[in-house]
């Protein structure tokens, strides 16, 4: 159960960081007896205790951990892949900020579909363009949500209404 030991350590770190952040909460004369720091303090202690419990259990149960044989290499690769997907997706935020909603959705669909193994062909671009158009119709036109405008491009899509 090496994973549980790692988790236990990370959670202890989270608990102490959270506790440290509670010291930033202002105390007021309007406060009730428990105050705004009350629950956060309890939670950080609780998390620390549970994390210690998790670690202790992992140490004690260590010999039984036989069936957890996993191909470490493959696992690693898939973790990398997963983080890669998140990174590609996260690029949507700057793209939407700079270019605006419709181009950003187009790029997002192309990028993720390609990352997920779609063949890069005219078909992919056509589907992405069609998808961006449908999303624009749905969110901007039908639901009336002003999706982000790009700061670089003139706001040609969300300004325009049918």
């Amino acid at each position: 159960m090496r994973k549980d030991l790692v988790a236990s350590a990370v959670l202890l770190l989270v608990a102490s960081l959270y506790y440290w952040a509670t010291t930033d909460i202002p105390t007021t004369t309007l406060s009730d007896d428990i105050g705004p720091r009350g629950l956060p303090n309890v939670l950080s202690i609780l998390l620390a205790l549970l994390a210690i419990g998790l670690g202790a259990r992992a140490l004690l149960a260590a010999p039984v951990a036989a069936p957890e044989i996993e191909d470490d290499k493959e696992k690693e690769a898939s973790t990398l892949r997963a983080f890669g997907l998140l990174l590609v997706g996260a690029l949507y935020v700057p793209a939407a900020y700079a270019l605006g909603y419709v181009p950003a959705i187009f790029l997002l669909v192309v990028a993720i579909a390609a990352y997920e193994g779609a063949r890069v062909s005219w078909r992919l671009f056509a589907v992405a363009a069609g998808g961006a158009a449908i999303f624009w119709l749905l969110f901007v036109q039908a639901l009336g949500i002003p999706q982000p405008d790009g700061v670089l491009l003139p706001s040609m899509f969300s300004e325009f209404r049918l």
Binding site: L85, A96, I105, A111, A113, A114, A118, G131, F135
Partner: peptide, 13 residues
């Protein structure tokens, strides 16, 4: 691949 891309697009929108 397409499904994943469109779910992602739906989420951010």
């Amino acid at each position: 691949p397409y499904l994943a891309a469109f779910i992602f697009a739906l989420v951010v929108s």
